[in-house]
Design a protein around this nucleic acid. Structure first.
Lengths: 222, 222, 222, 222
DNA sequence: GATGAATGAGGGTTCATTCAT
DNA sequence: AATGAATGAACCCTCATTCAT
């Protein structure tokens, strides 16, 4: 954490901290999450974080050497958490017509969830000041999403269910198709969470376009 | 401007200010542009803005009642400026195979330009605190882009060159296909400006996918 | 002022500031003098200095970029002030028997004055952290004292009134003889200002010893 | 210890603590010595002292009621230690021409040693806040030095080797002559330890001046 | 209209001290 | 007796804002 002038601590608890730490550290991180999410990095004050966490300001510094490290720990923790949920328990053997909409729905839901939006906003806003945070976010989030989808596409291609030469790029295209202006509007806080119907529409059209480009003519549809 | 505790002024200069104001106000706005772009809203200080603009701190407050209003004026002004270029001097009568790549290239260049990225980052970061700013940004930028592309698609559909039932949604899909992870990485400052070859690749693939879904079989390709 | 992390200001007023500045800057310096003298560098707080000076905390930073620079300005100003007084209006043509006691008395008075003691204490205490301040103090105080006395001794030697081979060292010795444990005790705050009789005794003995070593036999005393 | 707001303890361990305490208390004092010497009273932090001593912060408060008392105990202990060496194993029967330079050299070496300088600086700096510490320092250091030298001078006077009416004052003068500006510069950290030649020069000149004032004509020099 | 000195609340951070374990 | 997590006051410094000139 080169950006932190006080970082000589070898603080490593962030990685080990589980969801249900009963300790002050997670209490602090939860407070930080609220305040950072609401006020952004610069806008958040250590005083407010301490108050939100229900600890004294000094306690903050018993766990994190400075504001920047606390922010970093918060981003790392939350990044790791929610990407996992998207790709759990998918049936990778399902045909594209079933699988792609399912993945699409989940991606969509995650992409537009409050938590992810808040995180996205903060990481984008502070990308200049915290480059390695942007890296972490990208690796934990978008990159893993692409990897998962690409893996499925590869497999489907091997099975003769898709006709794809560059699975990774195809995956990126599929994910890009989720990001119509619904996403943009949501990121800008212009709209709330879209309705299920809206989601289905976007996902459906995305799958349709994707298959019209990469799909194979299926005998059973003739 | 509900976020501004001092807003009792009916200050309307933002709308009236033209591009080439020779006055102090535009001088101030130019200074603000530099500093806000570099430091973000919270990170910018009125002192630095005054210094950058070459005026005194007091002068800032003669034109803008508070920091928030100055920020708002800056975003409004700059938003209006930069979208126009993308759709200037396009030949709307050209066939999709020529027109779409051309639009794609321009969109791409604008999307990833430093100016747009800076603006995007700021508006996203402060969307919570300045909701009407996000609205302005969306209307001036993404919405106009969609409108332009949709208009072209409509016309092409009428000319029998595309087969599209919902031109607006199709336009959104086309624009979405520009936003592979190249865009995401650039937004996160993980990469610099992509090479021309990379851009061509993304644009080419996007057009190809778009046409495979919405294109009509053209006699001259048989 | 390499020790000051914020010093990029080219602040030069310290040199130009006269004794009777009617401005805030001297007001601040006077407040700083009181508080630094009482509490030392580390012990002094900018809040207290502001209060003592009757200005706001922010005003301090309008004149001095940081605490260290304020301290430095205070030392520089006061150093320059009081050395001058010691050697003013001396009759350098007087014979050693008259001149040396007179110089001795003045040196003594200055050496043990509250102001000089306070300054000495602070400079000694912070010599490690402010090396160039120690240099300034030495140059403005002790070094000039030696130079003045050495100049007189040189002249007296040329006039045949003293027999000295190394006037500078002789001057140092003369000054050293002022520093019996009366000085040490005063520096340690163990005693108050010595009585006139005590001073006369020390000075008289010092002159006597000095002359017994460097004096010439005078015809008129035979 | 009126300066200590928590002093209700009748803590007397400082006096009872011997040089070779194998216990935590001396461990703490050793840590305190390092940190106080390096950082001064205000600059030292209880955390660093605890770390340096290899004990917990809580343990500090089991032995010393507050920072001020710990500081006081440290100064008292160290003051007692270092003066003894100067006057050990001197041959008090030696003639002044031999004895005085020898004493002079030792005094000089001690006066300018890092340890003594550090202690001197701290005691001088905090003389206002810890008056009884200054007293301890003076009694343990300068006062004993004067007493030793005065005792020798008395004896030499009785033996007819010196002509002195006030041995104590003569002793102070002799010691004062050690303190040319070499000492001042060293105290101000402007120079490092002087060379042996420089020391010999100052000591030689001091002895010469002292003897020219208080010496007796020696038959063997006729 | 333009200035910039003055303000004081609030920023991040440190630290002497306490107390449950 | 020993610990170290927790505290909260105080630290230095920044900054949006005001106002006399």
């Amino acid at each position: 954490m080169a950006w932190c002038p006080h970082d000589d601590s070898g603080h490593i608890s962030a990685g080990a901290a589980s969801d249900d730490m009963p300790c002050k550290e997670s209490q602090v991180l939860n407070g930080a999450a609220s305040v950072f999410a609401r006020d952004g990095y610069e806008g958040a004050s250590m005083s407010r974080i301490a108050a939100e966490a229900g600890v004294s300001k000094g306690t903050l510094y018993n766990y994190f050497t400075c504001k920047a490290e606390l922010f970093s720990a918060y981003v790392h923790r939350d990044c790791s958490r929610w990407i996992a949920l998207v790709f759990d328990e998918l049936d990778y053997a399902a045909p594209p017509e079933e699988m792609l909409p399912q993945i699409g729905r989940r991606i969509f839901a995650m992409l537009l969830s409050d938590r992810a939006l808040v995180m996205y906003r903060m990481v984008v806003a502070e990308a200049e000041k915290f480059p390695e945070l942007a890296q972490t976010f990208y690796a934990a989030g978008p990159a893993r999403a692409v990897a998962h989808v690409a893996a499925y596409i590869s497999r489907a291609a091997e099975d003769g269910r898709l006709c794809v030469d560059d699975p990774e790029f195809a995956a990126e295209q599929f994910l890009a198709l989720m990001q119509t202006h619904l996403s943009m509007k949501r990121r800008l806080r212009l709209i709330g969470m879209p309705s299920q119907a809206e989601i289905e529409h976007v996902v459906g059209k995305a799958v349709q376009m994707f298959l019209s480009s990469y799909g194979v003519a299926r005998p059973d549809t003739i």
